[in-house]
């Protein structure tokens, strides 16, 4: 099939970006969206042009490195999927596809479609862990964790850290991401000793990074590849209030 890509090109963080059109031929329906971009890049090399910088690694929807705004939607037209799992069969011959980077002040553009998401790492740094040194663990089955709790924790622990929730949010809020990590740990008995400090420190860092406030529009849960619900944000807010009162 033939497809025209309109792609955001920006040489460096400070330079001015522009949407550029590229016509491509020889795209097959079985190609993943990122393979179609590979294909475009091979065409650009043949023409002696600079390739489009875009992010990827595992290409099976789990590493969270790929992140593209495709036709105005985070990770493209389908819900709960990553750009690497989107296939060209979702488009038609002759389509024009607009590809932009994640747009959020807290995710500055590095080049073309590549943004800097290190703000997420800094939020984790402020408490997204259990403070226990290697070698100090008690016998695993000494602590019983009901299946319902383990499952609910796993539901939010599944976050892949891609940033689609931020990119799709009109406020560029990182509430879904931050809540997922807080709730993953705070639901578990292992996470209880630090629960209040975790909520307060991580949310403070979230604000310091310049993410917007959450107004519970629910846009994030539509795009989240891990299917995390905004109920997670409500739970975080509840934990926040309790931490303020009790912490």
């Amino acid at each position: 099939m033939k497809v025209t890509f309109k792609i955001w090109r920006q040489d460096s963080p400070k330079s001015k970006g522009v949407l550029k059109s590229y016509e491509t031929d020889g795209i097959s329906e079985d190609m993943s969206f990122l393979e179609a971009l590979d294909h475009l890049n091979e065409i650009l090399v043949a023409k002696n042009e600079k390739v489009v910088a875009f992010e990827y690694d595992c290409r099976e929807g789990i590493c969270g490195q790929c992140g593209l705004f495709i036709n105005g939607r985070a990770h493209g037209p389908h819900e709960h999927t990553t750009a690497c799992q989107l296939h060209m069969r979702s488009f038609k011959d002759g389509d024009t596809i607009v590809v932009e980077p994640w747009r959020a002040a807290a995710f500055p553009i590095i080049k073309d479609l590549v943004v800097d998401r290190s703000a997420f790492d800094r939020i984790i740094e402020k408490g997204g862990y259990i403070s226990a040194k290697t070698g100090t663990a008690p016998e695993a089955n000494a602590m019983l964790i009901p299946k319902e709790i383990a499952d609910a924790s796993m539901d939010v622990a599944a976050c892949i850290g891609c940033g689609a929730c931020v990119a799709t949010c009109k406020n560029a809020s990182a509430a879904l991401f931050t809540s997922a990590k807080i709730n993953h740990l705070n639901k578990l008995p292992q996470g209880k000793p630090e629960q209040h400090r975790r909520v307060l420190d991580m949310t403070a860092q979230m604000e310091a990074e310049g993410f917007g406030s959450c107004t519970l529009t629910g846009a994030c849960e539509v795009e989240c590849p891990a299917g995390i619900s905004i109920a997670s944000i409500a739970e975080m807010n509840n934990r926040y209030v309790r931490a303020k009162l009790l912490g």
């Binding site: 862990y129 663990a137 016998e139 695993a140 019983l144 299946k147 383990a150 924790s153 796993m154 292992q190």
Partner: peptide
Amino acid sequence: APLIDHYVQQGVPFAREYGGVL
């Protein structure tokens, strides 16, 4: 065996039985 203990301590939500064991 100690590695499982270690990861449970770090908050890995391994699959559990209804009774709470792994």
